[in-house]
């Protein structure tokens, strides 16, 4: 059985890699297997995790006892019926004349996402980052090295110029345009840094698969 699994994995691995040459029946077969199995897999996992684990157990909590044998069963959370009701409304889409009701749960989701993200993103992205940029250019005790001073200046100037680039209300011309160009310079450096940082980890993924093919499957490397 283990042997079969190994060969199957190798078959699937090579099938996916074959896409790099061109689209072909082998890849199409792997793709079909991948889509079918994974769609089923995720539905099952979500069903047991969310419908059973979160909804059912939330409404009808399982009996639990602590080490001393005292009952510590959670209180039933009947609010979860709201979630289930919205879920059922979603299915109204399948009923021809009242399909529009399915917009209610959609509206609920959009409203809650917008409400939750608004303050959370504002707090973590805007407030915290602005606060983090307020650092002394010459170090805490006027004792920073030239290396650190240049670094601090770069962080302050770069953040400022980057924000100028994102400004929508003013054309990028004159001094403003020049500053925006400095902003672009910093953004490109940032993207380059992220790019370079990721390349190695991507290579290690390939090495992992090569290790499987040449080691686990073919036994060419130990």
């Amino acid at each position: 059985m283990e042997h079969f699994a190994l060969w199957l994995a190798a078959f699937l691995t090579l099938g996916i890699v074959s896409f790099l040459y061109k689209d072909n029946p082998w890849y199409k077969l792997c793709e079909a297997i991948f889509v079918g199995l994974s769609a089923g897999y995720w539905f099952v996992v979500l069903f047991w995790d969310n419908i059973y684990g979160k909804f059912w157990v939330g409404v009808f909590p399982l009996e639990e006892f602590d080490e001393a044998g005292r009952e510590i069963t959670a209180e039933p959370d009947y609010w979860l019926f709201v979630g289930a009701a919205l879920g059922i409304l979603m299915l109204m889409r399948l009923v021809p004349n009242i399909g529009w009701i399915s917009r209610w749960p959609l509206a609920f989701i959009v409203g809650s996402t917008a409400g939750l993200y608004l303050i959370n993103y504002f707090s973590s992205n805007m407030m915290r980052q602005v606060q983090g940029t307020i650092v002394p250019l010459f170090g805490a005790g006027y004792d920073a090295s030239a290396y650190a001073i240049v670094g601090n200046i770069v962080v302050a100037v770069g953040t400022f110029a980057g924000l100028v680039y994102f400004f929508f209300s003013k054309e990028h011309r004159g001094v403003f345009g020049g500053t925006a160009k400095v902003g672009v310079f910093f953004l490109m450096l940032t993207f380059g840094a992220s790019f370079g940082y990721t390349v190695m980890s991507r290579m290690s993924l390939l090495i992992g698969r090569m290790d499987f093919l040449l080691g686990d499957w073919l036994g060419m490397i130990k």
Partner: peptide, 9 residues
């Protein structure tokens, strides 16, 4: 499919 790389494939 909900699967990240299944979707990509």
């Amino acid at each position: 499919t909900d699967e990240q790389f299944g979707y990509v494939a």
